[in-house]
Design a protein around this nucleic acid. Sequence first.
DNA 1: CAAACATATGAATAATTGTTCATATGACAG
DNA 2: CTGTCATATGAACAATTATTCATATGTTTG
Lengths: 122, 122
Amino acid sequence: MTREDLPEVERCEFIHVHEDIVKKVTREMPGDETLYDLADLFRIFADSTRIKILYVLYGSEMCVCDIAQLLGMTQSAISHQLRALKQSKLVKYRREGKTVFYSLADDHVVTILAQGMEHIAE
Amino acid sequence: MTREDLPEVERCEFIHVHEDIVKKVTREMPGDETLYDLADLFRIFADSTRIKILYVLYGSEMCVCDIAQLLGMTQSAISHQLRALKQSKLVKYRREGKTVFYSLADDHVVTILAQGMEHIAE
DNA sequence: CAAACATATGAATAATTGTTCATATGACAG
DNA sequence: CTGTCATATGAACAATTATTCATATGTTTG
């Protein structure tokens, strides 16, 4: 198979990596759907407002209005972001009368934030 | 201080969280600049192309062209993304003649990806 | 030096996204 | 039921971003 047989994809003169590495990588690479889900998850962390929300919830469960006041932002903005956090299962909530209390869903949140902090601290 | 004294920020009837929790949270909250850096870092993970790149580099150090071929994408697209990964210090590189070999910079990358995978696997 | 190859980069475009504003839903008190 | 409070949501706008295309930089070979 020569270079001219594959005009759609650019190719370098020769592939540097060994064939068994190519096989290993393609075998161990998660499926596209999983990779999209993973990117979607990290996109939730990719906003400082949502990170702030996660930080305050790390301190204590809290209602929407309290979070808004603590962060000096509108109730609407916080509610929108809480929805994103909820859909990604990073926070959970319980209703108590008119008030809805949010809290962290599990330890992955804390671990991921901590690893990120470690990385930028270098 | 009554509600009317703070017209800029919406307030709920009363703050639910105890004052010491408010103090604790505001004290432990990282500064705004740190939070922006953290969000910027996670934004790098928030794209499936970059995640794919990190995955193939987890298998082996690799040159730009090899990555492009493995992922079926153009050299330019990969190079742009590698720049983002490089600026975030998630990958490092070494030059060998015309070729530039990229590899993972440290273990935080692997840990963060693994934690993310665990989370979406639930 | 020139030609060829690997990589990097700038500009442009299409798509995504965070906030605001207005309004809707839901719960409780009277 | 009505009014009020807490929260949720839809539409719109501004800002950000991933890819493509064209081209530039840098290295090696002859």
